[in-house]
Amino acid sequence: MPWLTPGLEQDLNSLVPGGVHRNISLARVSRWRVGGTAPLVVAPGSVSELQRVMTYVSRHGLPYVVLGSSTNLLFADEGLEVLAIHIGARLGGFRIEGARVWSEAGIWVPAFARRLARAGLSGAEHTCGIPGTLGGLVCMNGGSQRKGIGDHVIDVTSVTAGGERRVRTREECGFRYRQSVFQGLGEIIVGARFRFSAADSPVLVRREMLAILGQRRRKFPRKMPNCGSVFVSNPAMYAQYGPPGAVIEQCGLKGMRVGGAMISPLHANFIVNHEAARATDILSLIGLARRIVRERTGYTMAAEVCYVSPAGEIVPAHIRAEALRLPSVDDSIPGVTPEPASGMGQ
């Protein structure tokens, strides 16, 4: 890695005191507990520190990747060969002014939802069980119950690859279901302003959040490492066959294993690290599920989770999965052979 020069760590430490770390295990960071090593990670503690880092990176032409909580990321088994810039708790400022909320991007989403509930504000209840940081939530227009955080955004602040600060209104953010303009801009979300509504009863807000968390505990696998929902819901497929988990289950894929990865027997839109899984195992299952669902229904599912290559490229995991040689059903564990569900034989 020619970019990893002896003076680089010293320079970054001068720009971000106390925020530079060497040889970080990505498997310890990943919710899937999968991935190699990041040779150098820098975690800015303010927007100005991030701007200085990006200016330095741009000036010296350093290869880099921006990471948040990594809850929806699958890291390569080989690890990273680029500088990692981490937006996390060190960039987690938060302020409430009436119904308006300002927050930096590194705040943990469940903590964000709890603070709003304690302040008597309603509108973020659906995010209370989503693991991740706010920057990622805004970038993906994330949420649950088919809701998105973008509905409450006033504006979003980001930093460009060259270190410039930008502010975009909600309209300029281009929010759609699980999408925003930030997914293709190459900018780093550092904060956002929101407008929520005063709750009729803070007690009812808390009850709704507890109900959502209880439902997630019952429906989703929690005892094995996983990255949450793997495939994004397609409205057309949903109307005809149901959500991804139900369709994958109807195709007979619950419990399917490749290597140490397994499609969860509890919820089929989750892939769990059953036993020392590798990234290639998970990608193979993504490709397998995608191919069989396409054969049975005519719909091609898109992955919600993303793959991070050693070069720092972040792409939807199904794109990487398509590039692999996928196992056939017969190559998977003995005795688990998907059968088409009634009415899904397109």
Rank of each mutant, 00 (worst) to 15 (best):
V203E: 07
L204E: 15
L204Y: 10
V205L: 11
V205W: 14
V205G: 01
R206V: 10
R206I: 08
R206N: 01
E208V: 11
E208F: 14
L210I: 02
A211Y: 07
A211E: 13
I212A: 14
I212W: 15
L213A: 04
L213D: 08
G214I: 04
G214E: 13
G214Q: 07
Q215P: 02
Q215I: 03
Q215F: 04
R216A: 00
R216H: 05
R217D: 05
R218G: 00
R218Q: 09
R218M: 04
R222C: 09
R222L: 14
R222M: 13
M224I: 02
M224C: 03
P225M: 04
N226D: 03
G228P: 10
G228I: 04
G228H: 09
S229L: 02
F231Y: 07
F231M: 12
V232P: 02
N234E: 15
N234A: 08
P235I: 01
A236I: 01
M237D: 08
Y238Q: 15
G242D: 08
G242K: 10
P244N: 00
P244L: 00
G245H: 07
A246V: 03
E249F: 13
C251D: 09
C251P: 12
G252E: 07
G252P: 11
L253R: 11
K254V: 13
K254F: 12
M256F: 11
M256P: 05
R257E: 14
V258H: 12
G260Y: 11
G260K: 12
A261G: 10
A261D: 08
I263G: 06
I263F: 06
S264T: 06
P265S: 09
L266H: 09
L266A: 04
A268E: 12
F270L: 01
F270V: 08
I271D: 12
V272G: 12
V272K: 10
N273E: 10
N273D: 06
E275T: 00
A277V: 10
A277W: 13
R278G: 13
R278T: 15
A279L: 12
T280A: 15
L283D: 06
S284R: 12
L285Q: 11
L285G: 11
I286Y: 03
I286H: 02
L288P: 01
R290S: 15
R290N: 07
I292R: 06
I292A: 02
V293F: 14
V293Q: 05
G298E: 15
G298P: 09
Y299A: 11
A302I: 06
A302M: 10
A302K: 14
A303N: 09
C306Y: 00
C306T: 01
Y307S: 11
V308I: 07
V308H: 01
S309G: 05
P310L: 03
P310Y: 05
A311R: 15
A311D: 09
G312N: 01
E313P: 03
E313D: 07
I314N: 06
P316S: 05
H318I: 02
A321F: 11
E322S: 10
A323E: 14
A323Y: 10
A323G: 00
A323C: 10
R325F: 01
P327W: 03
P327H: 03
V329D: 03
V329T: 05
D330Q: 14
I333K: 07
I333V: 12
P334G: 04
P334M: 05
G335S: 10
G335I: 07
G335L: 06
V336D: 01
T337Y: 08
P338T: 01
P338I: 02
P338V: 00
E339L: 05
E339F: 03
E339I: 02
